[in-house]
Simulated scan of single mutants.
Amino acid sequence: MRFLPVLRKLAQAYQSFEHYSASHLKSIGLTMTQFDIIATLGNQPPMTCKELGEKTLVTKGTLTGVLERLEGKGIIRRETNREDARSQMVSLTQDGQQLFEKVFPEHVTYLGRAFCKLTAREVEELSGSLEKLRSIF
């Protein structure tokens, strides 16, 4: 049971990150989920909803609603997949790409203000530890 304090710290760290990140995204008019989708689609060719779900942290049930709202705002477009008419291809519109080009570097800079408090070695160690933790599950 010595892992229980680690789980608590992991959850607290994620909650702190989410609060820090979400407050900035809210100030620029986006949710974490919307940003995740826009960031994933930015500078990329169209992808299926399945691919988008796999590349983001968005569950299938949530993805549908968020895509509908982003499409309604003119940020993304969904078109029938020419290779498989049962699926749709999702991409950013021109307005969506412009939004990506504005908010992505802005948010990365914002996150960088927190991460710059760590040394390069600490970042590398954290990355290794998190990858090791992910791999055991």
Rank of each mutant, 00 (worst) to 15 (best):
Q12H: 06
V66C: 01
T48K: 05
M89G: 04
R77P: 03
F137T: 13
E101G: 08
G65Y: 06
S87H: 15
T93C: 09
G72F: 06
L57C: 07
I75R: 00
T33M: 11
S135R: 15
L41S: 12
Y20Q: 04
G128D: 13
Q97E: 14
A11R: 10
E125H: 04
E71D: 10
A11H: 13
F100R: 04
L130P: 00
A11N: 10
F17Y: 15
K60A: 15
R77E: 14
C116V: 15
E124A: 14
F137W: 13
A11F: 00
D84L: 03
Y110N: 12
K117L: 12
S127H: 14
L10N: 06
E122F: 01
A13L: 07
D84K: 02
R8E: 08
F3P: 00
L92G: 01
E125V: 01
H107A: 02
H24M: 14
L111A: 14
E18F: 06
L57W: 09
C49E: 15
S21P: 06
K50P: 07
V108C: 05
K73M: 09
K102A: 08
S23T: 15
R69W: 05
T62M: 05
K55Q: 14
Q44M: 08
K60W: 15
T64M: 09
E51M: 12
K73F: 10
E83F: 09
A22H: 09
R77N: 12
R69Y: 00
T119H: 00
E51A: 13
M89F: 02
E54T: 09
I75K: 10
T119K: 03
L57K: 03
G74I: 02
G74A: 07
Q15L: 13
P45K: 10
E124K: 05
L7D: 01
V123K: 12
T119V: 01
A120M: 10
G112F: 11
K50F: 15
I136L: 04
D84G: 02
A11T: 06
T31H: 04
L118A: 02
L126A: 09
M89I: 02
S23A: 11
T109Q: 15
R8V: 08
A22R: 11
A13S: 10
Q12R: 09
T80G: 14
G74D: 12
Y14V: 08
R2V: 08
L63P: 07
H24W: 14
